[in-house]
Design a protein around this nucleic acid. Structure first.
Lengths: 108, 108
DNA sequence: TCTAATATGTCGTTATGCGACATGTCGCTG
DNA sequence: CAGCGACATGTCGCATAACGACATATTAGA
């Protein structure tokens, strides 16, 4: 994940899901299904690969929540991860604004 | 480009550029530099690969503009291409809306 | 004349998504 | 208690795409 490069959809959705609260892998899949309006169901191959890279880049970190029985190994956004998510959302907002303007230029 | 899949940034920018008016390859690189606020300079490897796929999928088509001396071989959005661009921009709008809400949920 | 901008293309490397496969636990129901 | 579906985590291999490097040719201007 080099800096400045656009995030892939799976990575964006993972960051968005963790922005609300820490979660473990399976919970991410479920939450992303919801927040994408049932459009995206992450395969585990996609998920665990992306999580590994996000951990390496320190955008997320492991987070042990000892209580609540057996929900161990949750992931949590780092401040850096949160910052990157903010940047990406800004980029997307800008892009959609320009894109919609371009479409309207020539919809005759 | 299977249906429903998110567009990559290069492809999105190409469609956005052609939404305003038909252009040839080199003009696309220049225009995309502008519309992305000098953030994105497409390499020709990226550009001509993407154009080939867009032609195959009939999202764009070759468009001969005979006058204006030697600006041949321009590309133009097809109605299908325009539709796909609209869908993608809707998707991005939805995504940013949810993402910004998620960020605000937990910015303490 | 030679140089920069215009213009179009290919190739190899690298990164990533994603389906398939593998494994194990937990709680419920017949 | 057997079996099943949901929960949970992971690996592997294939296909796709971005992207820098390389290759070429034309045109306008200094």
């Amino acid at each position: 994940m080099e800096p400045g490069k656009p995030l892939t959809e799976p990575v964006l959705l993972i960051l968005m899901s963790l922005a609300a609260q820490p979660r473990h892998g399976y919970a991410l899949i479920k939450d992303i299904e919801t927040l994408s309006n049932n459009r995206v169901r992450l395969s585990t191959g996609t998920l665990y690969g992306a999580l590994r890279r996000l951990l390496e880049d320190l955008w997320i970190e492991r987070f042990e929540q000892e209580d609540t029985s057996r929900d161990k190994q949750a992931y949590r956004l780092t401040p850096e991860g949160r910052r990157q998510l903010q940047l990406e959302l800004e980029r997307l907002k800008q892009l959609t604004r320009v894109g919609i303007a371009r479409l309207r230029m020539n919809e005759a």
